[in-house]
């Protein structure tokens, strides 16, 4: 993002917090694809991901006043999405890979992909969230630290722990525990 865009977004977020509907919608639309991909990465199929988009739009609008730092608006949205997805997965406890859109598009034939998915399932919600922010949304460790009000060093340690857990997940291949 260019500086001008960042500035623009800050203004939009401030307007949205004040209750301007157009500003809110503009923001959601600018992140709709990011939200959708996050949803797909957790839920794996189109129907559930679209439902997630609907629910997250609803939740975001309801709690827009709680956005503390306009600069982190995107991550704020992504976190609402991740929270929602964790809940859905816990509630349904289903085999997420079956009948998934990814199967349809031939992606799950890729063995590495399957392996990563299964290893991710062995992680805690927290670890998964951290990996997602860092390696999916490309959020900087420094920013995660500010957002979570946690020292950078601690985030780094936790990130390492999450990667180690992921490695352990790979090594468990074939005998995957569901979390």
């Amino acid at each position: 993002m260019k500086w001008g865009e960042i500035l623009n977004e800050k203004i939009l977020v401030k307007k949205a917090i004040k209750g301007e509907e157009e500003a809110f919608l503009a923001l959601i639309h600018s992140y709709e694809e990011a939200l959708y991909r996050t949803a797909i990465s957790y839920l794996k199929n189109e129907g559930d991901a679209l439902e997630a988009i609907q629910e997250v739009t609803y939740r975001a609008y309801r709690s827009i006043k709680t956005v503390k730092e306009p600069a982190y608006f995107k991550t704020w949205l992504i976190r609402i999405m991740m929270n929602y997805c964790h809940d859905v997965i816990k509630k349904s406890n289903r085999e997420v890979l079956e009948e998934s859109i990814l199967t349809m598009q031939g992606i799950t034939e890729d063995l590495t992909f399957l392996e990563v998915e299964e290893a991710l399932l062995t992680l805690s919600d927290y670890e998964r969230e951290l990996l997602h922010l860092k390696y999916f949304e490309d959020v900087k460790i420094k920013d995660i630290a500010v957002m979570w009000n946690t020292p950078e060093g601690t985030i780094k340690t936790r990130l390492h722990k999450a990667l180690r857990a992921l490695r352990a997940g790979f090594e468990e291949k074939g005998d995957v525990k569901r979390v």
């Binding site: 991909r37 598009q105 992606i107 590495t112 990563v116 990996l131 999916f136 990667l163 992921l166 490695r167």
Partner: peptide, 21 residues
């Protein structure tokens, strides 16, 4: 450290980025 894990996560992102919407 964990280069392999990081690479796999990158690949996963790329796969998911292919999903049409």
């Amino acid at each position: 450290m964990f280069e392999e894990e990081k690479k796999k996560l990158e690949q996963r992102k790329k796969s998911i980025d292919q999903v049409d919407v």
